[in-house]
Design a binder for these strands. Sequence first.
DNA 1: TATTATTGGTTTCACTTGAAACTAAATACA
DNA 2: TGTATTTAGTTTCAAGTGAAACCAATAATA
Lengths: 153, 153
Amino acid sequence: MPEQTSKSLILQQFIPYRMVNTAKRISDNLSKIYVSEHFGVTIPEWRILARLAEDERLNSRDIGRITMMDKSKVSRGVKLLDGKGLLIKEKDEQDHRVTYLSLSEAGCRLYHELAPRALEWESRLIRVLDTSEYRDLMRILEKLDKQLDSMES
Amino acid sequence: MPEQTSKSLILQQFIPYRMVNTAKRISDNLSKIYVSEHFGVTIPEWRILARLAEDERLNSRDIGRITMMDKSKVSRGVKLLDGKGLLIKEKDEQDHRVTYLSLSEAGCRLYHELAPRALEWESRLIRVLDTSEYRDLMRILEKLDKQLDSMES
DNA sequence: TATTATTGGTTTCACTTGAAACTAAATACA
DNA sequence: TGTATTTAGTTTCAAGTGAAACCAATAATA
């Protein structure tokens, strides 16, 4: 009987480890753009901003669902953005629990300052991938996401 | 003059966003195995454990450098593992600042309980990728890491 | 219509995190 | 030598996090 049947775990070849490490580096580096670099926006704020730039009049719940942030995070992000006058809030007339959020003038302006820099940073990052690799990565991420859906349920 | 030259940012197609989201889901799900599932090991502890299983007699600094954890995290992880009797510590005779760490009997045993489950979880995750996609992903992660190295400097 | 369950959103609380300060030891250099 | 710098590792502190409790409003059901 072999004393150690299992294929051994080598951290450098362990997908979860690699993905998490690389993603953290990406997040840390990119976030420097909006967090420090004179914009003073947190990551949750940035996500909400970006999401509202794509779709007007979302409520917190929608934003949470779409961006995979739990409701506390969204709530705090919204509070911060609102405090800076970057949002427009509209209470739903029918359902008084929900508030629709959109970007104010200032919110739009900030977004249009930030987005090009974020895109520029991304393009510098993925410059090392050729077009097929870029498509591969997207497809792989989609597949992994789908698999996670099924593993979570 | 065009009023909006920049390619617009769509969150779902923005690599940093996608990578960070997927990696977080992976981390959250996998960590359930060792955090809760009757092992009670934190993520930093697990990383140190796994790393020491691969290489004996590392000091905290080495572990930090290799696993990309800052020294506070390593320090706390080591303290926890040591408190459970999972480590062997040896002070360097020449340099009294450094302590070499190895797995104790119990540490080895715990590792050999955990590793197969982690690998099993990984294999369930990547089951959706065909062999070429698996290789693609590894190569892409390597390229991104290398690019991050150069962007950070 | 009263009662119960559900939902959108906020807040609390215990825990984790990383930057910075710190300690102790070793090294460099005057 | 002695003084300044660097390094291994710990601790402190302020901030961020998510689970759970909570509040108010709506929907479901008796």
